[in-house]
Amino acid sequence: MSSAPPRNTAHLTFRDAREEDVPALVALVQSAYRGEESRLGWSSEADLVGGIRIDADGVRSIIGAPGSRLVVVADGGETICCFQLERRGEWAYFGLFAVRPGLQGAGVGRHVIGAAEEMARAEWAAREVRMTVIAQRVELIAWYERCGYRRTGRLSPFPYGDERVGTPLRDDLVFEELVKALG
């Protein structure tokens, strides 16, 4: 994990993504997940999957989807983080979580995930939040467990052959579901 200095999160702003955010969000997500820039943070998946993480059309589809929100987190007008929430009955799906690599390990992610959980509870009366994580991302899963998530043991296949999610660098990738009950 990176040893970035703790960051003051009191002044972070949250808003729904708009069309004009698409290029910045594609770049943010790519920098947090893939390529050399992602290695500046501690949660890169560059050794597992190469290529793109999401393209502009993928971001637009989340922005325009009913029951879904793509939230931009900014500090002083600068986009530093994003996440997706999707309403799925009594629970909410949490995904596309990206923190600028240089800020990983500084408390931003923990603050933002707490805010996302509160949004799901307050706005949708969600009883739990679920997500899927590549099971081989052991450090990231351990971090989510420290944030109160638990592994369900439910696995789903990685979408091999779907270039919209990148190029797998291993042949054993699977997603594991994590869940957290909301009070």
Rank of each mutant, 00 (worst) to 15 (best):
Val72Glu: 06
Met119Trp: 09
Gly67Phe: 07
Gly148Trp: 11
Ala120Tyr: 02
Gly102Cys: 11
Arg110Glu: 13
Leu173Asp: 08
Ala32Asn: 04
His11Lys: 09
Ser68Cys: 12
Val138Tyr: 01
Ser43Gly: 03
Arg146Asn: 07
Ser61Glu: 15
Ile134Lys: 01
Val129His: 04
Gly77Asn: 06
Gln136Cys: 00
Ser44Asp: 08
Arg121Lys: 11
Phe94Leu: 15
Trp143Tyr: 14
Arg69Val: 14
Asp172Asn: 01
Glu78Lys: 14
Ile62Pro: 04
Glu90Gly: 15
Pro66Gln: 12
Thr79Asn: 04
Thr152Asp: 07
Glu123Arg: 11
Trp91Phe: 11
Glu90Asp: 15
Ala65Phe: 05
Arg87Glu: 13
Arg137Phe: 03
Leu85His: 07
Ser31Pro: 12
Glu177Lys: 01
Arg127Gln: 15
Ser68Lys: 12
Arg170Glu: 00
Phe97Ala: 14
Thr167Ala: 05
Leu182Trp: 05
Leu182Val: 05
Phe83Leu: 09
Ile54Glu: 04
Thr79Ala: 04
Thr79Pro: 03
Asp55Tyr: 10
Ser2Arg: 14
Glu128Asp: 15
Arg53Asp: 09
Glu163Ala: 13
Ala106Phe: 07
Glu45Leu: 07
Met131Trp: 07
Ala122Cys: 11
Trp143Cys: 05
Cys82Ile: 01
Asp171Pro: 00
Ile54Tyr: 02
Ala116Val: 04
Arg127Ile: 02
Ser61Leu: 10
Arg15Phe: 00
Asp75Lys: 02
Gly58Arg: 07
Val129Cys: 14
Asp55His: 11
Val138Arg: 09
Val59Arg: 10
Arg150Lys: 08
Leu155Pro: 02
Arg87Ile: 05
Cys81His: 15
